[in-house]
Design a protein around this nucleic acid. Sequence first.
DNA 1: TGGTATATAAACAGAA
DNA 2: CTTCTGTTTATATACC
Length: 451
Amino acid sequence: MAPTRNSDESDASMRERLVNSLSQSFPGSALSKALSCMSAEDSDDDMKDPLSSSCFAELRLDKVDIEDDDELTSLSWLQDNDLLKNIKPSDVDDDDDSQKENDNIHRDGNHFNPTHPPHVPYNPQKHIHSKPPYSFSCLIFMAVEDSPHKKLPVKDIYSWILNHFPYFQNAPTGWKNSVRHNLSLNKCFKKVDKDRGQSIGKGSLWCIDPDYRPNLLQALRKTPYHPYHQLQMLANPQPTQQYHYVPNGMRPMPLTPRFGPNTISPHRDIQDVAHTLVSLKGLGSRGSPARSSDGEDYASNSYRMRLKRKQMQLKTDFVKRRHTEPIVVTEVPSEDHTYSLTNFGNIGSPASSIDEEYDFGEEDDNFSECSDMSDWDSDMDEVDGDIPDKHTKITPHKNIQNSSMVKMTSRKRKEMEEEEQKKIVEGADALLNLAGIMTNSSSLKSNRSHS
DNA sequence: TGGTATATAAACAGAA
DNA sequence: CTTCTGTTTATATACC
């Protein structure tokens, strides 16, 4: 059963209110700006759900086929639960109060208090004395996911964390040890052997084990994103009233019954995506500009191009794997991403190597129209020199070939994938637009709507 | 009360 | 030799 719509207020006005509230929570953030742009645009069918088609779509409701996407994307759910009703500047605008509180209560001289007040929205660029509410696993995950090829050397993981979470710039040095410790012990992370002659310095590249990626996504989803959590609590303080979106024909997911970070709902999905976007793209660019290991500014054209390609690549991986990758909705925290997690992903579809799951750097013919990548490979070679040669094409995902879950004919699957990938391209544009990066198509669309 | 997740510290080996 | 990287062990804390 889908949320009922209240048509008293248009989506446009809903957007406007959301933009206002987000702007107060994250002043100047890319998300706020992006939402502002979106709100200025005419409602466009192509832009129904920018997030659902993004690489962060996996943060959404468990990757099931959602037929009623527009129910989630129209933002009407905000209205349904009166989420915006209680949004007032005093509620979410913590610029002064939280900082004061952060300074007075959570900072004792040069002491760094590891805790962040749960009622204060966390801003990594501002609350530099509060430890980020992300586990090291999540930090590493975000860093790797934010890299163009989804693999990073330890040094760049450090850099990413430092760039996005200035807390660590003055934090005790043990955090790097913790990062390495996590990389070693956490099964979610895998080393990637360097190609011969690759010059990235010491050590290996680290990537996300595809089998455990859903677990990390879920862990990220469970992270207490204070601003939205707060809004949710304001709007819907009754745990038993929490609505769980269930697609047609699907039985309800066995979600954790208590209300809070573990609760998965369309609300949280979009909230998580929004917050993750802000964290990854918006806030990281404030203050000290985020830079990759080769010193490239994340706002540069080259990086935008990488980002665009990355979104497509991520989505391609997602499409390829979505038919075979088990949907992970765990009730038990131990099933999330523990050090000693059993390899559920190997059931029926063992991934013998990372490269079989990820097409690192491989050109995807489906996106050949995005061909303005002249600087791509040369740029990437500095960091990721082990891009497979086009002629040594990686074996197609044998997961798909072997999976018993794929029961449709190859023709129909191809049709579906083509349709899916069409959505991907649109979604990638939408996501980039959300992140404050205008693409050709989105700018054209914007121009069209304003002319 | 025990199990689990996570953080932190430390020791150590090996590579660059 | 130094620094960095990666592994392992141990301990502490919080949560369920």
